[in-house]
Measured scan of single mutants.
Amino acid sequence: DCSRLFDNDLPDGWEERRTASGRIQYLNHITRTTQWERPTRPASEYSSP
């Protein structure tokens, strides 16, 4: 389970979450994917897998 964190500095379409182990990951709501690196572009600029 991940708990949500609120971060207004993220590009549109992204959400920051913390894993059960405390690591931060980023959820792309457009492609429904996650990544460990902080995003720098809006989620819509990433392609679906």
Rank of each mutant, 00 (worst) to 15 (best):
D1L: 01
D1G: 00
D1V: 02
D1N: 14
D1T: 02
C2I: 11
C2L: 05
C2K: 13
S3Y: 02
S3Q: 14
R4F: 15
R4D: 15
R4C: 14
R4T: 15
L5P: 08
L5I: 15
L5A: 14
L5W: 01
L5V: 07
F6K: 14
F6T: 14
F6M: 10
F6L: 09
F6I: 10
F6Y: 08
D7Y: 07
N8W: 06
N8G: 12
N8V: 07
D9T: 14
D9M: 05
D9W: 04
L10P: 00
L10G: 01
L10A: 02
L10W: 02
P11A: 06
P11L: 04
P11R: 03
P11G: 03
D12S: 13
D12N: 13
D12P: 13
D12C: 08
D12G: 09
D12Q: 15
G13M: 01
G13W: 01
G13I: 00
G13A: 02
G13V: 01
G13H: 04
W14S: 03
W14M: 01
W14G: 03
W14T: 02
E15W: 02
E15N: 04
E16D: 00
E16R: 05
E16V: 10
E16I: 13
R17M: 13
R17G: 07
R17L: 10
R18W: 02
R18C: 12
R18A: 11
R18S: 11
R18N: 10
R18L: 10
R18F: 10
T19E: 13
T19M: 08
T19Q: 08
T19L: 11
T19I: 08
A20Q: 11
A20G: 12
A20D: 15
A20R: 10
A20I: 04
A20V: 12
A20M: 05
A20F: 01
S21K: 11
S21V: 10
S21L: 06
S21W: 05
S21G: 14
S21I: 00
S21Q: 10
G22N: 05
G22P: 01
G22M: 02
G22C: 00
R23P: 06
R23Q: 13
R23I: 07
R23F: 04
I24V: 10
I24T: 13
I24E: 03
I24K: 11
I24S: 08
I24D: 05
I24C: 08
Q25F: 09
Q25V: 08
Q25M: 06
Q25L: 06
Q25K: 02
Q25W: 13
Y26I: 00
Y26S: 01
L27C: 08
L27S: 12
L27G: 02
N28F: 00
N28P: 00
N28Y: 00
H29V: 13
H29K: 14
H29Y: 06
I30H: 11
I30W: 03
I30Y: 06
T31Q: 05
T31D: 12
R32D: 15
R32W: 07
R32K: 15
R32F: 08
T33S: 15
T33L: 13
T34A: 04
T34N: 01
T34F: 14
T34C: 09
T34Y: 06
T34I: 02
Q35C: 09
Q35P: 00
Q35I: 04
W36R: 05
W36F: 07
W36D: 13
E37N: 01
R38M: 03
R38T: 00
R38S: 03
R38G: 02
T40F: 04
T40Y: 03
T40S: 13
T40Q: 13
R41K: 15
R41L: 15
P42G: 08
P42S: 11
P42V: 05
P42M: 05
P42W: 03
A43S: 07
A43Y: 06
A43V: 08
A43Q: 05
S44F: 12
S44G: 14
S44Q: 06
E45R: 04
E45P: 03
E45D: 10
Y46K: 14
Y46A: 09
Y46H: 11
Y46C: 12
S47H: 04
S47C: 09
S48Y: 06
